[in-house]
């Protein structure tokens, strides 16, 4: 690890100022990706702006039929939060299945979606529930947030404050973990929310995406059988040692069906 200057501001304004004031500065949320990268000396930020002292970035509250979850809320907190378990149990289950206990106790919602790892779990929920990402500058629709592999709609220095999840009529998440890392090789979030049926996929492609054909089929008939035969093209899917593009494309259908089956 290289040397860096460390900041631990108490407010969003101070955090943004600290981040803007230094060359190659970066925000530190849970650090579950940043710290290993720094330890391997693959990243060498000049300044670390640790967000952990900012109190109003943590916690869950109900706001006009939606759940607002602070960006610095850990996966473990989301997984065990009574409100999340009552209103969106699929989201609690998703958070409870991220990494291992150590990761869940450190990793945060905001950190995960800002990093936009193609195999992270949360992007499936943000997209699958049609959530809204609230930053220090604006509100970004979940549908517009994930741009590409490790790339989001966030501007330089823009800070996620919270994510607002609409409460769905029903929702479920099924994932096929990478056998080695246990990240999602394919994770599918299925939801009926606000009169809409949404199917969002993470892990399979460079960025989380929705599957309109499956959404249409499920709108017609919300059943696993309705998804049979809907094949996702393998073109553009991720491919690695653990799963070819073709295998991942196949698993999208399997996991989508399993998510729907879990609701019946």
């Amino acid at each position: 690890m290289y040397n860096f200057d460390y900041h631990r501001p108490n407010s969003v304004d101070d955090a943004v100022r600290a981040r803007g004031g230094s060359e190659d500065a970066t925000f530190l949320a849970g650090g579950m990706t940043l710290l290993p990268t720094m330890k391997q000396r693959l990243a060498s930020p000049s300044d670390i702006v640790d967000l952990s002292a900012i109190q109003d970035m943590t916690g869950v509250c109900e706001d006009d039929g939606r759940l607002a979850i602070g960006a610095m809320t850990t996966h473990a907190s989301v997984a065990s939060d009574p409100l999340v378990n009552q209103k969106i149990p699929a989201l609690a289950k998703l958070a409870g299945g991220i990494g291992d206990p150590q990761v869940r106790n450190r990793g945060t919602l905001g950190g995960s979606i800002a990093n936009a790892d193609p195999s992270a779990d949360y992007p499936a929920a943000v997209l699958g529930l049609g959530a809204t990402v609230k930053t220090n500058k604006r509100e970004i629709s979940g549908d517009d947030f994930f741009v590409d592999m490790f790339e989001t709609a966030l501007e330089e220095g823009e800070l996620i404050l919270s994510v607002n999840f609409p409460v769905p009529d029903k929702a479920a998440y099924a994932k096929f973990p990478n056998p080695a890392s246990r990240y999602a090789m394919v994770g599918v979030f299925v939801a009926q929310v606000g009169g809409e049926t949404r199917v969002a996929v993470t892990g399979a492609a460079p960025s989380a995406f929705r599957v309109s054909e499956m959404e249409a089929a499920l709108s017609n008939s919300f059943s696993a059988d309705a998804l049979r035969g809907i094949n996702i093209p393998a073109d553009g899917m991720n491919s690695d040692l653990h799963g070819s593009a073709e295998y991942r494309a196949h698993l999208v259908n399997v996991m989508a069906r399993r998510a729907v089956e879990s609701l019946s």
């Binding site: 056998p179 080695a180 890392s181 690695d240 040692l241 653990h242």
Partner: peptide, 24 residues
Amino acid sequence: LYENCVYDSDSGQLITGSYMDYCM
């Protein structure tokens, strides 16, 4: 079922050089 050490056959780089890819 899980473990497999893989080198890239062209470059000789160890592909399974961490627990992200070497499955225990």
